[in-house]
Amino acid sequence: MTPEAQSKIDSLVNNNKVLVFMKGSKLMPQCGFSNNVVQILNTLGVPYETVDVLDDPEIRQGIKEYSNWPTIPQIYLNGEFLGGSDIAIELYQSGELQQMVEVAMAS
């Protein structure tokens, strides 16, 4: 990962309470897994930002090393890596995600 990509990702995750690295946009997700995450966050009604990794090859590769996670989407909550689509679905179904997001928004 280039130092530029690293500092770009640092600043993105630290300046957004809820951030999703995904393929496509909120309105037009380009992958089913990214779509899952968008649908969950929309259902929770929480404000969140997205980064389209298809627009930026450096971030697309860099975020995999940054999080030590080989797949997209990736969710960051309060600067901390939460997981990908599988973990988001599990946390959503157990009700934990709602709580975690509320805590993050209040902090």
Binding site: F33, W69, T71, F81, G83, G84, D86
Partner: peptide, 23 residues
């Protein structure tokens, strides 16, 4: 969970890197 999944992904790292496994 993150750590658990990272451990499994590490086991299939090469196949995912080379895109033999898409998802």
């Amino acid at each position: 969970r993150v750590k658990q999944h990272q451990m499994v992904y590490a086991a299939v790292n090469e196949a995912m890197d080379s895109n033999v496994i898409h998802a």
